[in-house]
Design a protein around this nucleic acid. Sequence first.
DNA 1: ACAGTTATGGACGGAACAGTCCATAATGGA
DNA 2: TCCATTATGGACTGTTCCGTCCATAACTGT
Lengths: 219, 219
Amino acid sequence: MDRTVNYGYSGGVARPREFDEEAVLDIAGEQFWTKGYAGTSMDAIAGATGLGKGSLYGAFGGKHQLFLQIFDAYCARITDAVAKGLIGPDDGAYARLCAHIRAAAGEIAADTRHHGCFLAKGAAELSERDPDVTVRSRRALERIAAVLAEDIRAAQRHGDLDRGADADQLATLVLAVLRGIEALGKAGMDAGRLESVAETAISLLPRAGKASETDSAGR
Amino acid sequence: MDRTVNYGYSGGVARPREFDEEAVLDIAGEQFWTKGYAGTSMDAIAGATGLGKGSLYGAFGGKHQLFLQIFDAYCARITDAVAKGLIGPDDGAYARLCAHIRAAAGEIAADTRHHGCFLAKGAAELSERDPDVTVRSRRALERIAAVLAEDIRAAQRHGDLDRGADADQLATLVLAVLRGIEALGKAGMDAGRLESVAETAISLLPRAGKASETDSAGR
DNA sequence: ACAGTTATGGACGGAACAGTCCATAATGGA
DNA sequence: TCCATTATGGACTGTTCCGTCCATAACTGT
């Protein structure tokens, strides 16, 4: 990550950075997020950040590397946020799951700019042709699915969700619903309907005790 | 759509087109689909189609109009295909719904290139900043949701799905699941898991006769 | 004060961009 | 055989693209 070398002894000390790397990444990320990878020029980033192109290339290497660094940070942030919201005692696992689904839908519904999720947008634009993006987006989604599955297992242990359901499959379905709400929001669907999707999904989760259709699930 | 003028009488007749408009739109669409709007140049389209830029601009007006025309055609094709697959007698409505969900997931799972859905990709890239794209993608999804809802109502009438469920909400949820599977596929998730998402979703549909959780649905 | 190191920012190069222009070609009616 | 009209395709314009280069600046251990 650090591009400085300075092996062994050296008579001098380098000039320090004058810009805040985090702030620059934020601004550059906002550009990529809004205009996409191909739609964002390094000149635009230089202009928006106030950096000269020499500094930009010196610090981040190039457009692709800069994008990947931002994409990585976003993926890490989003997976951490999900984990923070879902990990906890078995006791509140089901409530946390519902709250997470509602919160995700609510955020998307409130996003009147249709700014959406950077992970989704980056994957949609680049995943097909850029393996670096594919592996990162895939890994992020796998992590989120794993956290969802763990929470679902907790809810099963506590007796809130049907113990007969396959937690991994259910988690992947919940993740699909969340990504689907995102896609619908991106396409301009009303906020109310997005939130009702979340409620409908929650209402169809296989609650423990009640008869559920999981008997016919395994194909 | 037709750019020719020729008001009233005119002494001559114009030179006819030498290219197949449909074929050109297909090729240009493939470029947009693969490389995105910003990532595709009119020169690349001219090169791929063999057309000169004069013909290209003369026939389609410009990059944005060309894209919209292709996008429109894709939306129409996809909505028609869904309608064709879902509209029918109440008798097979439930089976058609399941088959549609399975087929959609199967197609995405089989799409090893992660080429995905042009509607989703176009909306992801442009919807935020291009109202023309927003309205088109939104309208297409609304139509698909309406067809799904109609099929669900048919299945309810026939007694395959719970009559107490709100068909519109259920349809939007199914649509979200479908778009979510698309997003997961785009991000590189295994084919097997995508198909299991479809099965899990089908298994959780509120079947008639069995107790379902819709009582707690309305928040 | 000097030396050795990295940061800065704007100029620069070559390629690619969207879109225009125009000489030329093709057509059927008059 | 002209004529009016549209199609063609490549040259062209002015801009923007990514990335490099480099003179200069800032810094600290000596």
